[in-house]
Design a protein around this nucleic acid. Structure first.
Lengths: 107, 107
DNA sequence: CCGTAGGTACGACGTGGGTCGTACCTACGG
DNA sequence: CCGTAGGTACGACCCACGTCGTACCTACGG
């Protein structure tokens, strides 16, 4: 079962949830940015400058978190997001590469 | 641009469309069945025994076709569906493996 | 010629999801 | 102590999508 913060365990990640989460362009953008950065990088939700309201940003990050793609931890008054790179790569090998390929001149 | 039958060319396959198409469990089932079978296998829409009406079946196959995942050709009074295995594998390498892994005891 | 089976087209309906505004909470900095 | 900035929670709205029934078209088999 998911932990208190809503993060599913590795074995609980469902392909359907992950694909649904990545079906949205904004969420794909977030994951792609995280995947392009160094492993373990922590970024605030607002650092992505998504062209939507704060409430919508929260919604998207919740979706990503509940799908198991990102982890969110409290850092003072900010909620830092990190890519669960190893988990995703183990459960769905090659998936992150598909995202990074998009927008890299390939798409 | 897509051909007369609505099949996008290889370079036109959009990751967003593909992920949206695969976000549906029924459509994932169809692709997984095709991927599990021999390459180039032709199957009728009805051979998948989807638990929905004929009209809905047509809708799902249209979505898969317009995303570029399958090809549909007329064979007499039937419309045979084939997986565009090589195209998908070239454009989104590893994607089909993720689908076949699901439901193979792994999910 | 008729019936049947496989699919499509069109219109309708209901639900889910992306969006927002607002109110609220929690640090941090004067 | 107050203001501000980052996020969340809740409720609302609207549209896209999955679903269906119906009508229709096209082979194929008596």
């Amino acid at each position: 079962m998911p932990d208190d913060e809503g993060h599913p365990a590795l074995a609980e990640m469902a392909l359907g949830d992950v694909l649904s989460a990545l079906a949205d362009p904004l969420r794909r953008h977030v994951v792609r940015e995280l995947a392009a950065g160094p492993d373990g990088a922590e970024r605030t939700c607002s650092s992505f400058a998504l062209p939507v309201s704060k409430a919508t940003v929260t919604h998207h990050f919740r979706t990503l978190r509940e799908a198991g793609l990102i982890r969110q931890v409290n850092r003072g008054n900010s909620r830092m997001a990190t890519l669960r790179r190893a988990d995703v790569e183990q459960r769905f090998p090659g998936l992150l590469a598909l995202l990074t390929a998009e927008g890299a001149g390939d798409a």
